[in-house]
Design a protein around this nucleic acid. Sequence first.
DNA 1: CCGATATTAGGACTAGGTACTAAAGTTAGT
DNA 2: ACTAACTTTAGTACCTAGTCCTAATATCGG
Lengths: 196, 196
Amino acid sequence: MRRTKKERQEHLQETIQANPFVTDEELAGQFHVSVQTIRLDRMELSIPELRERIKYVAERNMDDEVRSLPIEEVIGDIIDIELDKSAISIFDVKKEHVFTRNGIARGHHLFAQANSLAVAVINDEMALTRKADIQFTRPVREGERIVAKAKVIRTEKLQTIVKVSSFVGSELVFRGEFSMFRAPLPDKEGQDETGN
Amino acid sequence: MRRTKKERQEHLQETIQANPFVTDEELAGQFHVSVQTIRLDRMELSIPELRERIKYVAERNMDDEVRSLPIEEVIGDIIDIELDKSAISIFDVKKEHVFTRNGIARGHHLFAQANSLAVAVINDEMALTRKADIQFTRPVREGERIVAKAKVIRTEKLQTIVKVSSFVGSELVFRGEFSMFRAPLPDKEGQDETGN
DNA sequence: CCGATATTAGGACTAGGTACTAAAGTTAGT
DNA sequence: ACTAACTTTAGTACCTAGTCCTAATATCGG
């Protein structure tokens, strides 16, 4: 049996923190006091009622949802390109590209920039990534500008090897070797009669 | 003025989707119908009441909180996770994920799903991708659902190897081995003195 | 015009509260 | 031991955002 009011209130705070979905009635049961006592406690601790708590949690979630998805169509701006030879793009790391926890850019954005560039440099109707071997050599932070440089290493029948190096200033932050599948014309062997 | 019931219900669905925090009364005002009509509509469309909707959103958020890294930064929906062991996520390929040219999903989306999953599965404050070795084994098309399965292979001091395999149905479409750098967050002299 | 469908109105009830008053129970101080 | 202060419990009225149900109108198509 919990004894003092203070102890109970501390415990209450923790309990609600851990599980905001608990009703006063449930809490009253747990602490062997009346619901009124729980309510007084909540007031003294300025803990809002169940519905407000839930709403608060939900609202935080909604904020995040808005900025969760987008990897834009074109990742980075291509500033120079010589088809089947080389290409350069830049990409500015903004708030939406980094982990909120530590401000470090999420890897897939660096990958996306590099991969997009590898696709763009190929002078064919179709270019698909088959394989990639990549390394993140230094974390990139919000506000930094990444310059990606792609270089076509060699081309075989249906395959092209592209190397991409990304820099922030003079520092290498990412390096990747992409094996791209290329095809002159989309010979649609698959039916599209489904409409989509 | 909206005319048919059907139109109104479609609009209703979208409205609630966009903002789950709206009450029947507000909706009735917006659509120039009575609250009862809104309630009938909700029933026909099996849209739960405001509080249930909020709760649902909040619960999704709580699930996230349990994990070390916030889920909103994950590409795809995590449907199962066992920290430091394995995780599964799904990702539906939509129009915005494919090349308009050929309807094939852009590689970086598959990468993003897999990489996110590799990050999520790691039970530490910080997880960064250091290296990845990936293969795209089959093109993925619009409308297909990708199921990514991550498996933690081994953990060393500061490094964890995660293998991710992505499937459409039973077909392997992507495979990757991620070398993740992990670390407990650089200190945070947290002040939780919320006494006021 | 009739019948079906759609809309509106109203009442009874619910959960999970707030706000308030009032009565007890408990504890401390002298 | 006795009073004052604090703490807990009880009970009432009221609130929101609904559910569930019945019944009365409106509107539309054949």
